Simulated scan of single mutants.
Amino acid sequence: MGKASDEDERSFFSEVPVRPAPKARPAPAEKPGYLGHRDRLRERFASAGPDALPDYELLELLLFRLIPRADTKPAAKALLARFGTLAEVLGAPVNLLQEVKGIGPAVAFDLKVVAATAQRMAHGEVHGREVLSSWTQLLAYCRSAMAFEAREQFRILFLDKKNALIADEVQQTGTVDHTPVYPREVVKRALELSATAIILVHNHPTRLILITHNHALAH
């Protein structure tokens, strides 16, 4: 009887699995400080609207998507310090954008996609309306399209008899300081489009010149 009891006891203990000691749970990693800032900025945009945010914060919101794991405030402020306004940041060429710290090729490319989208939207807002009724809108559109072009352009906005935009075309592209203009080609194109008025736009490195059928405006 004693022998059987010993065997039963050995059998029992041999079948009991050895459980490892529970590992201590690692302390939760602290979230980077910029994540809380991003949440607060999104909440302000959602509750108060875009007018409640200065340009650098709107640019920060945009950069959130383009730079997901970093503080984007320094890059946003650096872009505005370099180029001046939000429109000019989006209008800047890729090579100049990449000269700003924190802006690599991928981010510069994505900013140009955003710029193209904004330009298309601005064009849609102007198209079919009385262009001359809003010089501020017209200047903003032309500035976003041309302000940081590396070469001079001669651009023409063709209008109908109601001053509504028929077409917006780059008629000539020149060098860094010279753009040829051929009045015969301008008139020919205006006749082809049945335009009754035109706005001529010519860019310079530091300014934008607009000449209309009966106005001249430098900005």
Rank of each mutant, 00 (worst) to 15 (best):
G104H: 05
L90H: 01
R25Q: 14
L63Q: 01
E43W: 06
A70D: 12
N95W: 00
T117G: 13
I103K: 01
I67D: 06
Y34C: 11
V16I: 10
A24K: 14
G91D: 01
K112L: 01
R38D: 08
G128Y: 10
P22Q: 10
Q98C: 06
E15Q: 07
L132Q: 07
Y56C: 10
P93I: 01
V16N: 04
L90D: 04
A76V: 02
C142Y: 02
T136Y: 06
A70H: 05
E60A: 14
P50A: 14
D39W: 05
E99F: 03
K101N: 08
E57R: 12
A150S: 14
F13W: 01
F83E: 13
H127P: 06
E99A: 09
T72F: 03
K73R: 11
A48Q: 15
L58M: 12
Y141M: 09
T85M: 02
V114N: 11
V114H: 11
W135F: 06
L139S: 12
L79P: 06
V89D: 07
A24Q: 13
E88C: 11
V100D: 02
A108N: 11
F64P: 02
A27G: 12
F45R: 15
K161H: 13
V18D: 10
V126K: 10
K77N: 10
W135S: 12
H123M: 08
L157G: 12
L157A: 14
A92D: 00
R82Y: 07
L62I: 07
L138G: 10
E15C: 05
H127E: 09
R143I: 05
M121L: 13
E15R: 05
H37A: 12
H127G: 03
A118R: 06
S134N: 15
E30C: 12
R44Q: 15
F83I: 10
R155L: 04
I67L: 12
K161T: 11
L132P: 02
A150C: 07
F154Y: 10
L66R: 07
R69L: 00
P50T: 02
A115G: 13
E43A: 15
A78I: 05
F109R: 14
A76C: 04
V107N: 02
K161F: 08
V107R: 05
G104F: 04
K23R: 13
D55K: 08
K77F: 04
P68I: 03
E57V: 08
K101T: 00
V131K: 04
E30A: 15
A118Y: 03
E43P: 04
A78P: 03
A92I: 01
L159N: 02
R155Y: 05
E130C: 11
Y141V: 08
A46F: 00
V89S: 04
L97T: 00
A122F: 04
L53T: 07
I103C: 03
G104P: 08
A70K: 13
R19P: 01
